[in-house]
Simulated scan of single mutants.
Amino acid sequence: MMPHPLDRPIWHSLTGAHAPLALGYGDALRYRPEAHFFAAAPDDCRASLVALARLLPLDGTLGLVQADAIDAPPGTHIRSRVAINQMVLTALTTAGAPIAFDDLGDADAPDMLALATLTAPGPFFAETHRLGAFIGVRHHGQLIAMAGERTRPPGFTEISAVCTHPDHRGRGFARALMQIAIARILARGDAAFLHVYGHNEGAVALYEALGFRFRREMIYTILEAA
């Protein structure tokens, strides 16, 4: 049986839709540092682990998301390793009320980075917005909520960077933006997926209400130099 592309979503994204953002060798790839710190290999053999280690900056980190845990590649140390839930959606089960939103791009990048830095929805860098389509809500010119896309393995698009400014939470922006982003993904023929900590019961409940279903547990590992 062929491995499922979502078991190694970063690898299948960097060798597919996100190849222009990839750096590395045949046995391992990573995103350009400005875009993300994610890296991946096609398998967990020694040659692949050695290639991953070559991609690790001396004073930085690499993030891996895959189905199986790995041993630390030569010359590296595992800073953290946690289990996360991977959820997949093929059809929206609810439709939200229309909201006013903007498509976000290069001109919005500083505001996007500032909001992500404040709210910490996950790793976000100066050019993370280049990974896919992002949308947001502004209030008096300030970006107060956004949602976007991250990895894109064949047939799938990951929803990510869903966040709302603390002063504007509880008004349904995150849910509404997710519904719009998901509808666009489905319209182009992809299924939507995301990753969430299993203990985050509020987020899991929201995603289930939208139509996401648990697929499998994944391992999120952060590597640093030994």
Rank of each mutant, 00 (worst) to 15 (best):
P3H: 10
L6E: 07
R8I: 09
P9H: 04
H12R: 10
S13R: 00
A17T: 11
P20T: 10
P20K: 09
L21Q: 13
L21K: 05
A28G: 10
L29R: 15
A35G: 03
A35S: 13
P42F: 04
D43R: 03
D44A: 15
D44C: 10
C45V: 11
R46L: 14
S48G: 08
L49Y: 04
L49V: 05
V50P: 03
V50K: 13
A53H: 02
R54D: 15
L56H: 05
L58A: 15
V65Y: 11
A67H: 13
D68Y: 02
A69K: 10
I70V: 13
D71S: 13
D71R: 08
P73N: 03
P73D: 00
P74Y: 07
T76D: 08
I78Q: 02
I78Y: 00
S80M: 12
R81A: 15
V82K: 13
V82G: 00
A83C: 13
Q86V: 08
M87A: 06
T93I: 11
A95F: 12
A97L: 13
P98A: 09
P98D: 02
F101G: 05
A107C: 06
D108A: 06
P110N: 02
P110K: 01
M112A: 00
T117M: 11
P121L: 02
P121M: 01
G122E: 02
F125T: 11
F125I: 01
L131T: 14
I135W: 00
V137R: 05
L143H: 01
M146P: 09
R150N: 04
R150T: 03
P154A: 13
G155I: 07
F156V: 06
I159C: 13
S160T: 07
S160C: 01
S160E: 06
A161Q: 03
T164E: 04
D167C: 09
D167T: 07
H168F: 15
G170W: 02
R171F: 08
A176F: 04
I182D: 00
I185Q: 11
L186T: 04
R188D: 15
A192Q: 04
V196N: 00
G198I: 01
H199E: 13
N200A: 04
E201H: 14
G202Q: 12
V204S: 00
A205T: 10
E208F: 06
L210A: 11
G211D: 06
R215D: 14
R216L: 12
M218H: 02
L223H: 06
L223P: 06
E224T: 12
